[in-house]
Computed example of a mutant assay.
Amino acid sequence: MPEIAAAEPFRSSIMQIEPQWIDYNGHLNMAYYNVMFDRAIDQLWLELGIGPTYMKERHGSTFTAECHVRYLREIHLGDPVRVSVWLLDADDKRLHTFEEFRHAAEGWLSATSENMSLHMDMNARRVVPFPPDIQQRIAAIAKAHSTVPRPAGIGRNIAMPAKR
């Protein structure tokens, strides 16, 4: 990881929709948005040093505790996609992220996902603080991301529209 974190959201690699993920409505099935969001988070976790090697060598990982997905525009087979991730906040055990799922060529927004992840000791299977070196990496990214304009949709609740 570079010493100075970029003051921009993390951007995943460009990903492709797999044919078996298209449902009978002819678009990406809702479950596979989460697969794509998770793949993007895995890429960010590598940058933070909490990917598969961290799990194998240090017996730590993250579990998603909460997730709120908004589906805004259909995405179809053949559409290239890219996910941007903001690390909104963190403490010694939790990471609060927000993700935007966009058409990689045209730039329009297809979906968002807001998540709370917990740091786990995989031997004890319980929530524990991140090690100090990882906390430093997380703090650097969170600080850099705090200077970037926040995307719309953070903190939204699910509710019926107000009656007029």
Rank of each mutant, 00 (worst) to 15 (best):
T112E: 05
V69Y: 01
L44A: 05
M55N: 06
P2F: 12
A111E: 02
F10P: 10
P9C: 08
W108I: 01
I141D: 02
I75L: 09
A140K: 13
M116F: 07
G60F: 08
Y33R: 02
M116Y: 09
L48N: 02
A124H: 03
L44V: 03
D79N: 05
L88E: 04
R11E: 14
E57M: 14
I14N: 11
Y54D: 09
I17C: 01
E99A: 12
D92E: 13
H96W: 11
E106T: 00
T97F: 03
F63E: 08
G49S: 07
Y71D: 04
A124D: 00
I17P: 08
G60Y: 08
S110K: 00
T53N: 10
R94K: 03
P151S: 01
D91E: 08
I50Y: 06
R82Y: 08
P129Y: 08
N25R: 14
W108F: 15
V148F: 05
V85Y: 04
Y33V: 06
P9Y: 04
M55L: 14
L28H: 03
V127I: 06
L72C: 07
V127A: 02
K163P: 15
I14C: 10
S61Y: 09
Q43K: 13
L72T: 06
R94T: 10
T147G: 14
M122E: 01
F63V: 08
A31G: 12
P161M: 12
